[in-house]
């Protein structure tokens, strides 16, 4: 934990700049997201709509459709990125993410089961189903691999195996119930385009709980950066800390999947970018990861509108296009150190 006093001042300046640039990009992202969509809207109308004056069609587009959609993209991006960061910390595995670790697949599977079994399947119910599935997915992975941090390879293999098992079951269910699950293929890649204020209201409490627990546990999570043996030596109940971490991951990833479907790769790539920019100090890394994740998904959602313009395409396509190559890059780069 040694510091370099000479560079300290510079480093602080850099961080300040980093956060302000990120905030600026987030604001720009929100603005372009609100400004451009299927209907043309002038800057003037945009300003009126944001300040909630005016009730014309154009104002309503922004107030009731584009705004919740953009906010939802930000929230989901935050959730996914933070969940990814936590899984990477808990497992000490750089290629860990809720997506690769059975949590997304488990949540998807149980939401699809719910959609097939109940015709009146509400959003709130789907969130609980997603939690259940996320727990199941995580449980499967950890029962296969154990929670000792000594076996990152086993964990990665178990995670991928469970991910594919659960995804194949989900797809099997969809094929067998093609009629009731018509557009679920669309849902399976994840999309925020239908987000409404109601959905934001539903997911916000979970964001609040997840982030609060995360912040409260921050000092303990810091020990996850250490070796397990050292942490135990320092008197930490490492298992308890890890379980709390998993709980937060399940809350964040589960509620995100239930609301918008599994949007892949955000949880994988954002923590890496954040870490390379903001460093390893959790009190900086955690908020920066959240902001960066939200920002990335806002931009991804914005660009996904133009894939099949003027019709919608799921944002998950875009995150997969960016995330796939990044995953391969990480696997190659870290492959040596892991093996």
């Amino acid at each position: 934990m040694s510091r370099f006093p000479v560079r300290k001042q510079k480093h602080k300046l850099f961080l300040l700049l980093l956060f302000s640039v990120t905030l600026l990009f987030i604001i720009i992202g929100f603005l372009i997201s609100l400004k451009w969509g299927q209907a043309a809207i002038s800057w003037r109308v945009l300003f009126e709509a944001i300040t909630f004056q005016g009730q014309t069609k154009e104002h309503l587009y922004i107030q009731t459709l584009r705004m919740p959609r953009t906010i939802m993209a930000f929230i989901i991006g935050c959730h996914m990125a933070l969940a990814g960061l936590l899984t990477q910390l808990i497992t000490r595995n750089p290629i860990a993410s809720p997506h690769v670790f059975g949590i997304n697949a488990g949540a998807s599977l149980s939401v699809v089961i719910g959609l097939i079994m109940f015709s009146h399947f509400t959003l709130t119910a789907s969130i609980y189903f997603a939690f259940l599935g996320a727990v199941l997915g995580a449980f499967l992975v950890f029962s296969l691999a154990g929670i000792q941090q000594k076996q990152p390879i086993q964990l990665a293999l178990a995670g991928i195996a469970v991910h594919f098992l659960l995804s194949s079951l989900t797809e099997g269910l969809i094929i067998m119930n093609e009629q009731s699950t018509d557009s679920m293929m669309f849902w399976l890649v994840g999309a925020v385009d239908q987000a409404s204020w109601l959905e934001i209201q539903t997911i916000l409490p979970w964001s609040a709980i997840g982030v609060t627990v995360l912040l409260l546990m921050l000092p303990s999570f810091r020990l996850l950066l250490l070796n397990d043996d050292v942490a135990v030596g320092l008197g930490q109940r490492i298992l308890f800390v890890k379980l709390c971490g998993m709980l937060v991951v399940i809350l964040l990833a589960g509620s995100a999947v239930a609301t918008c479907g599994p949007i892949g790769f955000i949880g994988l790539i954002v923590p890496h970018i954040a870490r390379s920019l903001a460093g390893n100090r959790l009190s900086l890394l955690v908020p920066f990861t959240g902001l960066l994740g939200g920002m990335l998904l806002v931009y991804a959602d914005f660009f996904s509108r133009f894939i099949a313009y003027p019709y919608e395409s799921p944002v998950g396509i875009l995150t997969a296009i960016i995330g796939g190559p990044f995953f391969i890059y990480l696997a190659r780069k870290k492959g040596a150190s892991l093996a």
Binding site: G37, Q38, Y61, L65, D193, P310, E312
Partner: peptide
């Protein structure tokens, strides 16, 4: 009007 037989419409696009 679309080459795609079943394009997904957002509410905004439907209103337009």
């Amino acid at each position: 009007k679309s080459e795609d037989s079943y394009p997904e419409l957002s509410l905004e696009q439907l209103v337009e």
